[in-house]
Amino acid sequence: MDALGRKNRRLVLQLVLGGILMFGFGFALVPLYDVFCRITGLNGKITNTGPIAAEEADTSRDIRVQFIGINNEAMPWEFRPTLNTVSVNPGEMRQMAYFARNPTSARMVAQAIPSVTPAEAAQYLHKVSCFCFDQQALDADEDMEMPLLFVIDKKLPADIHTITLSYTLFDITPRLSTGQIIKDDTQRSTL
């Protein structure tokens, strides 16, 4: 029976190890999903960010870029794009801005979360700089214009004529005040 006992123990160890690996795999799905999104543009996550070399604009195509601002549930700020739509040539670098105002009587911190549709277009929208890279703080009754600099890749598929870029504004004041750090900078830069 001892041989059987050893056989059982080995098998159990292997299976337990398998279970632990799958538990880890559950967590590994989080970064894997990000990679997957980057490749497929799933969910309209913008992954191309940072400085870019200047390029010749492709003036043969006009892309309509539509801007949307959304307030998440209890976010009382006034928040809207300064322009609803702009017409852009692929390769052309364009500056845009969102207006934000804190109408309450207290200082608040906000985080804007971008999203793009159609999802296939996400990987062709390159953000050189964006207010969504950082958290935004406004004192009571203060307002500001938040800039956004972007380029549309010339490789954008021919059937896409309109790209919608939305920002959802989240109130993160309570989370910050309880000492919870949202995330580190490296993570934020992928937004």
Partner: peptide
């Protein structure tokens, strides 16, 4: 007035101001 306009974070009370 404040809670009706701006809601209360972390609860079902929404900001009705908008």
């Amino acid at each position: 007035i404040n809670i009706v306009l701006h809601g209360k974070a972390g609860t079902a009370m929404q900001a009705f101001g908008a």
